[in-house]
Design a protein around this nucleic acid. Structure first.
Length: 295
DNA sequence: CTATCTGTTCTGAC
DNA sequence: TGTCAGAACAGATA
């Protein structure tokens, strides 16, 4: 599931590959995945690739943008022309039992049954928007409409102003909200999702059930530094591949091997407390934590 | 076979 | 206003 580190990893990968290329064709295989008129972006060049919250923005030379939200299962995979020729028909097929990880034949065979949009560039390379569950989208947004789109989001967790006072301000507004849902609120901590919220709270030794009004200033400081720590770790390992996430080259991330609580239900707690990782539901989301370590 | 669960965000009801 | 269920969708699991 793409959260800040996954989206940022894709952004970096795409930026390296497609800046300077001109879009020459867009093939829409699922109408609901694409909003806008393709005529507005065809024949224009990619100026930059940026991230805001969990959105990816491809800025074009004519003041239009392609904005993507990958939601749960969206992928953006770029292939150069040579690789497309060698892999387009009979990509190697892995079986479904490769070390407990899902099959990855979609990352070698492109397009595939999950491909919703195909962008072709002027060097014959292609960008594939794959999305198994079709929650994700790509839309064309004019330059002047970008900021209004981003207005709903709070400060990026790496912003210098993302500090105790900022979070206290939000906490005052919704004092009875639990810290888990608080951190998942995109108006407060955009880019945070289930994985990095659970990991951050474990690192901070704070229970996900704590109400925000009961969190002290020093605990807020700890939470902020834990968030930045685990997000940075996610960035370092190129994101978490739990099921569908791949980077811009179609490769897996490595953060899944460094998760301490997320999807570790029943395993011994790594806090050396002798407890086990529990799973409960908060706000409809699976929440993983250690009752001993997190107070 | 059906029922349940997953995980992000939006919508509509209370 | 905050809170919550349900929907969007497809597939893995029970």
């Amino acid at each position: 599931m793409p959260e800040l580190p996954e989206v940022e990893t894709i952004k970096k990968g795409l930026s390296k590959r497609i800046v300077g290329l001109k879009i020459v064709d867009i093939e829409i295989k699922n109408d609901k995945s694409f909003l806008g008129d393709v005529k507005k972006v065809i024949h224009y060049e990619v100026i930059s690739v940026e991230r805001r919250a969990k959105l990816i923005r491809i800025k074009l030379s004519n003041d239009y943008n392609l904005l993507f939200h990958l939601k749960l299962t969206g992928q953006l995979i770029w292939r150069d022309a040579a690789l497309l020729r060698s892999l387009s028909y009979e990509g190697p097929r892995s079986n479904s039992f490769s070390g407990g990880h899902p099959s990855y034949d979609w990352s070698t065979k492109l397009p595939n049954s999950n491909t919703r949009i195909i962008f072709t560039f002027d060097d014959d390379s292609k960008l594939f928007f794959n999305d198994l569950r079709k929650f994700g989208w790509c839309k064309i947004v004019a330059a002047q409409s970008i900021e209004p789109q981003f207005k709903e989001y709070g400060l990026d967790p790496f912003d210098k102003k993302f500090a105790t006072n900022y979070l206290l301000g939000h906490a005052k507004r919704i004092p009875n909200r639990n810290i888990k849902q608080f951190l998942m609120d995109q108006a407060i901590a955009p880019g945070m999702g289930n994985i990095y919220t659970d990991e951050s709270l474990f690192d901070a030794k704070i229970s996900p059930l704590r109400k925000v009004k009961d969190i002290s200033v020093s605990e807020w400081k700890t939470i902020i530094s834990s968030m930045q720590k685990v997000l940075n770790l996610g960035l370092k390992y190129g994101g978490t591949t739990d099921s569908d996430y791949v980077n811009a080259e179609g490769g897996k991330g490595g953060m899944q091997d460094h998760l301490k609580v997320y999807h570790q239900t029943g395993k011994p707690c790594l806090g050396a407390c002798g407890g086990v990782v529990k799973r409960i539901t908060i706000g409809g989301r699976g929440t993983h934590f250690c009752k001993n370590c997190q107070k």
